[in-house]
């Protein structure tokens, strides 16, 4: 995992450099153009709006958590940032890094490959419900309809609530929904 992400950084910077150079080349005829375009790039969706006043959204919460770096990397690889900052309401079941580590060796690395972007997006969307329910309230449900179009079961054991096999270990209300931290990665059933 680490070597791969380091490699990504490297590739990223190479690309960055390359593109920056090619842009500069084109912009020679009009020296003001790059500035204007630099402003344009901040307008690529709600995920990139600077906002210190409003309650953090589900994406902000995940990005701010040290236990969810794998999840955040996956969201970014699948380019799902903008879907997570929408008006929602969105309920995100956020597996911890430890949960991702429990997957068979190589699974995460494999999913992060560009050619597996759709499969990764499908898994991530299986962690998102349109709705906003507290852990207690979830006890009323037997299943939830997830954003990838599949259902996931809801069950209760004492005070614990399980989404599929994953136990909710913490819940953080967000500006556009709620993040339930879970101890397992949810894998969508084969259809």
């Amino acid at each position: 995992m680490k070597s791969i992400t380091n490699f990504k950084i490297f590739v990223g910077f190479c690309l960055l450099l390359g593109l920056a150079l090619s842009c500069k080349g084109e912009a020679k005829s009009d020296p003001k153009t790059p500035e204007v375009e630099a402003q344009e790039v901040t307008k690529q969706g709600q995920a990139f709006i600077k906002d210190d006043e409003a309650t953090p959204n589900v994406l902000n919460i995940a990005m701010g958590s040290e236990d969810h770096t794998t999840l955040v990397a996956a969201v970014q690889a699948a380019e799902l940032e903008n879907a997570l900052v929408n008006a929602g309401p969105l309920m995100v079941f956020a597996p911890t890094n430890a949960a991702f580590d429990e997957l068979p060796d190589g699974t995460v690395e494999n999913l992060l490959k560009p050619e597996n972007k759709d499969a990764l997006a499908n898994i991530l969307k299986y962690h998102v419900t349109p709705g906003k329910y507290s852990k207690d309230f979830l006890k009323k449900f037997q299943k939830l309809g997830q954003a990838n179009n599949q259902d996931v079961s809801v069950s209760t054991e004492g005070d614990d609530v399980f989404i599929g096999e994953a136990r909710i270990v913490a819940s953080i209300p967000a500006g556009n929904g709620i993040v339930h931290v879970v101890d397992k990665v949810l894998l969508p059933p084969e259809e």
Binding site: K8, I9, F13, E26, A27, P34, E40, V41, Q44, A73
Partner: peptide, 20 residues
């Protein structure tokens, strides 16, 4: 950092496309 790099790339790609 990776995130920043990826965003940067996406941004530049778009910027270049626009100017093109």
């Amino acid at each position: 950092l990776i995130g920043a790099a990826l965003l940067g790339i996406a941004a530049l790609l778009t910027a270049c496309k626009d100017s093109g």
